[in-house]
Simulated scan of single mutants.
Amino acid sequence: MLIYKGKPLGQVNTEGWHHSLRRTGIANVRWRGLRHTWASWLVQQGTKLYDLQEMGGWKTAVMVGRYANPARANMARHSRD
């Protein structure tokens, strides 16, 4: 859990996010990138796109497609099945 100004970080705002990154020595991380990674990993593990859309709060399947990128190895495996 991230702590900011002595309290648990319940919502990430710009100041708290950047402070936490500096404190941990993490560079070049953006929420959008984390969201892409999260969505892609779930799709690669077999999560249905509709379920991912619900979990991620996307309004359209097109938006899910922009975030969730299947791994080439998974695509090849599914094409053989």
Rank of each mutant, 00 (worst) to 15 (best):
Y4K: 01
L2M: 14
R35C: 02
L42E: 06
H19I: 07
K5M: 06
A73T: 06
D51C: 10
A39L: 08
A27P: 15
S40F: 00
N28Y: 08
N74Y: 09
V62H: 09
E54L: 15
L49N: 03
H18C: 08
T14C: 13
A39I: 03
L42P: 03
P70Y: 01
I26T: 08
L2H: 14
Q45E: 08
V43T: 11
Y4R: 00
L21R: 03
R30Q: 13
S40E: 02
G10Y: 14
T47H: 08
R72V: 14
V12N: 10
A61S: 11
Q11W: 12
H18G: 09
V62S: 10
G46R: 00
L2S: 11
L42V: 04
H78D: 11
A68T: 05
W38P: 13
Y4G: 01
L49I: 05
G57M: 06
M55R: 08
N28R: 09
W38V: 14
V29E: 10
D81A: 12
V12L: 13
R80S: 03
L21M: 04
W41M: 11
D81Q: 15
W38F: 14
Q45K: 07
Q53I: 03
A76F: 09
G10Q: 12
T37V: 07
V64C: 00
R22F: 08
H78Y: 12
N28I: 08
A68M: 05
S79P: 07
Q11M: 12
H36K: 09
D81E: 15
A76R: 11
H18R: 09
V62L: 11
Q53H: 03
M1N: 10
Y67T: 04
L9M: 03
G25Q: 04
Q11Y: 12
L2W: 14
T14R: 15
E15L: 12
T37P: 07
A76C: 09
T24W: 15
V29A: 09
E54P: 15
H18L: 12
Y67W: 04
H19S: 08
K7H: 05
N13E: 13
D51T: 10
K48M: 13
W31Y: 14
L42H: 07
R22V: 05
P70W: 00
D81P: 14
Q45M: 04
Y67P: 04
P8S: 03
G65S: 01
G57Y: 06
E15A: 09
M63H: 05
G65V: 01
Y4Q: 01
Q45F: 07
H19N: 06
V12F: 14
R32T: 11
A68I: 04
V29S: 09
Q11A: 09
I3Y: 05
Q45V: 02
G6P: 02
G57S: 05
L9A: 02
Q11R: 11
G6D: 00
K7W: 00
W38I: 13
